[in-house]
Structure formats: C-alpha cells, structure tokens
C-alpha cells in the first residue's frame, strides 16, 4: 500500500498527465456521441424501418472486440495511431447504448398520452418536443451514463495504439511486471468512472420531470 502511494507521488506529474489525456478522450467522445447519436435515436423513433437497420448496425459494432476495432482503425491511412482512431472507436461503441436508449425511451412513452395529445391537435413535432423527449429523459440518461462508464474503460485499451493515457500505466506495468504501476492505473480509471457516474446521476435527478417523481400523498 505504501509502495503504491510512494509510486503515485513520485510519478505524480506523469500520472496527472495521463489522467488528463484519459479524461479529455472520454470527454470528446461523449460530446461527439451526444451530438450524433441522440438526434439519430430521435430520428429512428419515427421510422421503424430505419430503426431496425440502425439498431442492427449498432449491435454489430458493439460486438467487435475493442482491441480489434482499434487495430483495424490504425491500418486506415488518415486515422493511424493515436487520437483519431481512439476517438472514432469510442464514438462507435457509444452508438449501441445511446441510440437504443434514446429510441427505447421515446418508444416506451405511454401510447395513450400520445393519442390524447394528437387528438387535441398537437402537431407531431410538438408532441416530440413537449412530451416524448421530456418523458424519455430518464431512459435516455441511463444510456448516457452507461456510455460514459463504458468509454472510461475502453479508453484504457487505446493505450495499445499510442494514446498516452492511464491505460498506459496498465499495459506498461504488465510488460514490466510493475504491480504499483498497474494498480495506480486501474484505481484511477475506476475513480474517473465513479466520478463521472456520480455527477451524471445528480444531473439525471435534476432532469427527470417533477411530475414523474411525485406520488399520491394520501
């Protein structure tokens, strides 16, 4: 234990540097995923044929082992080693949990609510904006949380293709049989995941519409 602490203190600047890279990779991946997959999820909720195609693709991508996916990207000329390949892989992995959760979230909104809203003359755009998206928020958010935690883990593997992040502590530690190095990488990655999840959990509680949290008091 004291060895571990000693190692971490002695290599603090390197570790912080790695943590910073790790963090920024996840952050960019999540931001890009949100921008791409949330709209796609909303889009496919309105078109069943497109939905089955997109969900099929997302599931397939999710089944590819991450090390394989990283390696394939490295061979593509304009991606190569490093950030672009890692980022693209993470964004693609995020497709499954994000698209499907957004889609499901919208789909599971009570049909009778939609029926009543439509019957009162609300346009389908308005129904989407004022009813489906707010009511889908909890499910969508669950997808985002899963994505972030998952991306934190997969990002570590990107160390194999040249990302200088916390994963490097693990890979290098393994080759050098350096226990403290492996442990500090693993612990910090886990901490980042927990941190993200906690923060997002708090945001989620703020986003869930109040009407869904109240119950009859009597």
């Amino acid at each position: 234990m004291s060895n571990l602490l000693k190692y971490m203190i002695e290599n603090a600047s390197m570790i912080l540097n790695y943590a910073n890279t790790h963090f920024s990779l996840i952050f960019s991946a999540v931001v890009i995923s949100l921008l791409v997959w949330v709209p796609l999820g909303i889009l496919i909720s309105r078109n069943e044929r497109l939905a089955s195609i997109v969900i099929g693709i997302a599931n397939t991508i999710f089944c590819i082992p991450s090390l394989a996916l990283f390696s394939v990207f490295v061979t593509i000329p304009f991606l190569g080693l490093g950030r672009s390949s890692s980022l693209l892989a993470l964004v693609l992995y995020a497709m499954m949990p994000m698209v499907i959760n957004v889609y499901q979230g919208i789909k599971v909104v009570d049909k009778s609510v939609i029926e009543a809203a439509k019957g009162m003359g609300m346009s389908s755009r308005r129904i989407l904006r004022e009813i489906q998206i707010p009511l889908a928020a909890p499910v969508m958010f669950a997808g985002i949380r899963i994505t972030v935690v998952m991306a934190t883990g997969i990002a570590a593997i990107a160390a194999y293709i040249g990302e200088r992040n916390l994963g490097r502590l693990i890979t290098e530690g393994i080759t050098r049989n350096h226990v403290e190095m492996i442990l500090s990488g693993a612990i910090l990655i886990a901490l980042i995941a927990i941190l993200f999840d906690t923060v997002l959990g708090a945001v989620e509680r703020m986003l869930v519409p109040k009407g869904l949290k109240v119950r009859r008091s009597n």
């Binding site: 029926e115 009162m120 009813i131």
Partner: peptide
C-alpha cells in the same frame, strides 16, 4: 383542436 376528445386511458401528460 376544434373537437373535444376524451379517451378511456385519459392520457394526461404525467410531467
């Protein structure tokens, strides 16, 4: 909009 519509499940917006 010009026709009142009531259904059995009511369909109140829960939020």
């Amino acid at each position: 909009m010009g026709i009142g519509y009531v259904i059995q499940q009511i369909g109140l917006l829960p939020h």
